[in-house]
Design a protein around this nucleic acid. Structure first.
Lengths: 168, 168
DNA sequence: ATAGGTGCAAACTCTTTGCATTGCA
DNA sequence: TGCAATGCAAAGAGTTTGCACCTAT
């Protein structure tokens, strides 16, 4: 799965930090702030752009260490972050991929099937088409997911290089 | 998962029937035509637009009946149909969804999160945007997947009706 | 004190695979 | 006849869940 994207978009302005925003979310529903939640929130918002549960778990303190978080809690907490509007999730190659949502602009993705990295792009035209198609069909949109699959520039280069070497 | 789509697009012209095309595919690689494959191919191309493995299995003869096909074979055969270019597959809500590809025009989907039905649409503008984004980023495209999530016209109606009733 | 949260292990869903047997070419 | 295909059951991957214990409010 992809590591952090190489093309971060500029952040949108938000008045609250992710931490503050999450606290608000918790308080309004009588949920609790816990060390695990604090730790995961900080970790996620200080580090990665795109990640799946497995990648995140790999980078967390291991069992017995100070801030260990069980897998079950990781999965439960990720879902909570999505509910809270901090993260967005979508499926890619069979697993759930997460990315920052709060304070981050709407965008879509290019996915390199060689290095498995996700690249972002923004297109107002795409949104416009989406809205028009939906209105033609009487659809009330809740969102969309567009992923362009292919081979990124770097991987194309490397392949060409590799092919050249193979000929020698 | 969705049943057949309610908005079939016009078929594109192809010279071979799916069956003929598949036979060609098999012959060129030394693979074999079997009763299971024939049966599944006919079933799929005579019936559904979108389906997942589970739905297909449900509609197949049960164990002990004449044309019973094991689950393993269903999964293996579906992958083969995709390899042969007869079907296309994509992930939706955790499972693989299949649809006709051979003899069917390129299109994208609207997905109703209430009735779970898939609706199709075609947009040249979308393809154009895709190509431009990819070329800007030096991406060699192999394909794309666009799904608009929302609530379809019918389900919106029903909900409104339901809300009205709830008020009585 | 008392819900809500956590960790653990077991369960679950969807799909793939190893292997002995069957059956096309 | 030989290699591909099938069926079965077991294994996988990724994720969710039941439950006893823990802890924030």
């Amino acid at each position: 799965m992809s590591g952090s994207s190489s093309t971060p978009l500029p952040p949108t302005n938000v008045s609250l930090s992710p931490r503050e925003r999450f606290e608000e979310y918790l308080q309004t529903r009588g949920l609790r702030q816990t060390n695990q939640r604090k730790f995961l929130l900080d970790k996620i918002f200080s580090e990665h752009e795109h990640f799946d549960a497995d990648e995140l778990i790999d980078r967390l303190p291991s069992k017995g260490s100070k801030n260990y978080v069980s897998n079950a809690t990781v999965y439960r907490t990720l879902r909570e972050f999505v509910d809270a509007g901090l993260l967005k999730s979508f499926q890619l190659e069979g697993r759930m991929v997460y990315e920052h949502d709060y304070g981050y602009p709407q965008h879509d993705h290019l996915y390199c099937t060689v290095c498995r990295e996700l690249f972002e792009f923004q297109s107002e035209a795409l949104t416009a088409i989406r809205d028009q198609v939906a209105s033609e069909q009487g659809f009330r949109i809740s969102g969309h997911r567009m992923i362009i699959h292919g081979v990124c520039r770097e991987c194309s280069k490397n392949r060409r290089k590799k092919r050249r070497q193979d000929l020698v």
